[in-house]
Amino acid sequence: MATGLTLYGARGSGAVAVEAALTLLEVPYALIDAETFDPDDKASGDQVLSANPMRQVPTLVLPSGEVMTESAAILICLADLHPASRLAPRPSDPKRAQFLRWMVFVSSAIYSLYWVKDEPSRLVPDPAGHGSLEARVLNRISDCWGIMDSQVTPGGYILGDELTVLDLYVATVSRFQPRRKRLYEVAPKMGEVVRRVDIDPRLHALWKDRMGFHEGWEG
């Protein structure tokens, strides 16, 4: 039986949102880097297969040995297991419904599209169509960010004045293409929120190491 949490993740991946949550919770964990998206290092990504046959990160192995996949589910679970952290509205909180709505929205309407965007041949065998498919996917992602932005009323954070794992999730996924400058244009309210999450001193070292504030990262 495992004695602690084990997270399969990768730099620049959605797993960094889980790392951010664990950092704020001050929960120790073992990290196994599994670069599932690196075709030149297949063995690295294959490490996750022992826990997740989908070969995807994040994959979290709980102390009991139980496996959790799906970034939104992991983030919600961690927040609920540590209610004192206030990283998620409690079930009785009026904000809970919208919290769940937008966590699943980011996962299903936005994050899932990278399965196609990152490897267009999964759906379009002809390379001649890859550029067009990618452009349409990126436009769809932007549209979804805009739809979400039009229906939230942030305070300091998306759901109000308390940071939640939803903010961590959006701050992470919005770093992917079409990147932040596009988000700032189509979702200006959430743009202000993710900038605030970017400079949270508790997460500075993590963002720098695992997501990278390199020149031009905003797009």
Rank of each mutant, 00 (worst) to 15 (best):
V170D: 03
M190F: 00
F99N: 08
A205S: 15
G4Y: 00
V186P: 10
E218K: 09
E70Q: 09
D80H: 07
R182H: 13
R210C: 04
A97C: 11
P91T: 00
C144I: 05
A73R: 04
G216A: 06
V124W: 03
I147M: 09
R11Y: 06
F176D: 13
S108G: 06
D149I: 04
L166Y: 05
H130G: 12
S108E: 12
S107E: 13
I141N: 01
A135V: 02
V152M: 12
T3G: 03
V18Y: 06
R180S: 06
V173P: 06
S150W: 11
L22N: 14
G4R: 07
L123M: 09
M190I: 00
P125I: 01
V106S: 00
T59H: 08
K42L: 10
R11E: 14
N52L: 15
R182L: 13
E70M: 07
F37L: 14
G65T: 08
L163P: 00
G131E: 14
L183F: 07
D200Y: 08
P178S: 05
D33M: 03
Q98L: 03
L113C: 07
H214I: 13
V152G: 10
Y111T: 12
A171R: 04
P53Q: 11
E19D: 10
V104N: 08
H204V: 12
R96K: 05
L24Y: 09
Y8N: 08
L159T: 03
T3N: 05
H214G: 04
S64V: 06
L25H: 02
A17P: 05
G9Q: 04
G4A: 03
E26R: 10
V48Y: 01
W207N: 15
D149G: 00
H82W: 05
R122S: 01
Y157H: 06
W102G: 03
R175M: 15
P39M: 02
E119Y: 08
S44K: 05
D38W: 01
K189I: 04
R122A: 07
L183Q: 11
V48W: 05
R140P: 00
A205T: 12
V197D: 02
L183A: 02
M1I: 09
S142N: 10
K117N: 14
R182D: 15
G12F: 03
M103Q: 09
C77H: 13
A109Y: 06
S71M: 13
R202T: 11
A97R: 14
Y114T: 14
L60P: 00
A10G: 07
W217Y: 12
S142A: 14
E19A: 12
D149P: 03
W115P: 02
Y114H: 14
A73Y: 00
R195E: 15
F99L: 01
V48D: 05
I199K: 15
G129T: 13
K42E: 14
L60M: 01
S13M: 11
S132H: 15
D46G: 00
V173C: 04
A84F: 13
A10S: 11
M190W: 00
V124H: 06
L78V: 01
L81V: 06
T23H: 14
I74R: 00
T164C: 05
A15M: 08
Q56I: 09
R179T: 06
V16Q: 07
A109Q: 15
L100M: 14
K117T: 10
G131C: 03
T3Q: 14
S107D: 13
V193N: 00
Y184L: 13
